[in-house]
């Protein structure tokens, strides 16, 4: 008893002491030779291990691009699965370097929780999924329904607001993670499952009877999802932000994983030259080397390629680009200039 108390205190103090180094994430990652990325517990298309145990997905690809930019090797990533509830504690305690996991940028998280959302890699909104034979075609018809909802998410707050605004009542079933929520929903423990529409599409794609489930047309919130870092280490925030923007910029400039070498050898476009590190010293200014963006693009392609390969219309998840099209094509994905 005495010893366990003692060991417990030692462990606690080690934890408290360990979290002290807020400033130097980049040095820590370099020294470790590995990036630790907070990921989903498993959301196909966004972040989940495949049959070989290798992590794949839209968010995972950004982690890989980041590892390629920082460490020169897209495979040097360790993925730490986090639930809606555990993710922010993991990030705040320094267990992960960056959180790329369908996390919505909100005021509270940005300020009180002391995080920085460095960019938005997916513009989303909250939707509802129901079984087709329930005979519901609009979220406004859900008065009195039982709703499965993940704890610790923005979506549980939006849900309460939506039902109140429409003068409807509901019974919540508060579930800890996506797979359990899907299991509860499939078993009929709730009438509808609500979360980010992209998450619904991803969950549905893994269901055996995907065709029997529909996502209702109402989108009840704004969910800008993006990579999150701790407050206070601005250099690390810059690295994550500009790695993500480099991928968007690459799509805008028509640079792909396949043609990046060729473009680098032949281009005369000054913007492309700056992006690929042939001109100026952008990489050095953020503590990396100048071809960080080139390596990030080579890791999994540009933003559009990553989108199509993981969640695009040719995949079972089948999401359209919609808001996530480039600004030049009527979407919101817009990278500030590299200069």
């Amino acid at each position: 008893m005495k010893t366990s108390v003692f060991l417990g205190t030692i462990a606690a103090s080690a934890l408290l002491a360990g979290a002290a180094s807020a400033q130097a994430t980049l040095e820590a990652v370099k020294a470790r030779g590995e990036l630790i990325c907070g990921s989903n517990t498993g959301l196909t298309g966004f972040g989940a291990p495949d049959a070989n145990g290798e992590w794949k997905g839209f968010d995972v690809s950004l982690c890989r691009a980041l590892a390629a930019a920082v460490l020169g090797d897209a495979t040097k990533v360790q993925f730490v699965p986090t639930t809606g509830e555990t993710r922010f504690t993991s990030l705040a305690s320094g267990e992960v370097d960056v959180l790329i996991r369908n996390s919505t940028w909100t005021f509270t998280r940005d300020t009180e929780l002391a995080f920085d959302f460095v960019s938005v890699n997916y513009y989303d909104g909250q939707g509802f999924m129901v079984k087709k034979d329930l005979g519901v075609s609009s979220a406004k018809e859900l008065d009195g329904a039982t709703v499965c909802i993940q704890t610790g998410t923005t979506t549980e707050l939006n849900l309460a607001d939506f039902f109140k605004a429409n003068n409807m009542s509901y019974t919540p079933v508060n579930v800890a993670d996506d797979s359990e929520a899907a299991a509860q929903y499939l078993a009929g423990a709730c009438d509808t499952y609500t979360t980010d529409a992209s998450g619904l599409a991803a969950s549905r794609a893994t269901m055996a009877d995907a065709a029997n489930h529909i996502i209702l047309p109402e989108i009840i919130s704004k969910e800008p999802l993006g990579p999150v870092v701790r407050h206070g280490d601005n250099n690390w925030g810059d690295i994550v932000r500009w790695t993500q923007y480099a991928l968007v910029m690459a799509e805008e400039l028509g640079i792909t994983a396949a043609n990046v070498e060729e473009v680098a050898a032949s281009t005369t476009n000054p913007e492309v030259r700056r992006l690929l590190g042939l001109e100026g010293d952008m990489g050095v200014k953020i503590g990396l080397d100048n071809d960080f963006a080139k390596r990030a693009i080579m890791a999994g392609g540009n933003y559009g390629e990553i989108f199509e390969a993981n969640i695009g219309s040719s995949t079972p998840i089948g999401l359209a680009r919609g808001l996530n099209a480039l600004w030049t094509q009527g979407g919101l994905q817009y990278a500030p200039p590299f200069r």
Binding site: E85, F88, A92, T108, E112, L113, T151, G152
Partner: peptide, 15 residues
């Protein structure tokens, strides 16, 4: 655990 130690903790970030 689910209310104070779960949702409240998470929504307010007051671990």
């Amino acid at each position: 655990r689910g209310t104070l130690g779960g949702i409240t903790l998470n929504q307010t970030g007051r671990e």
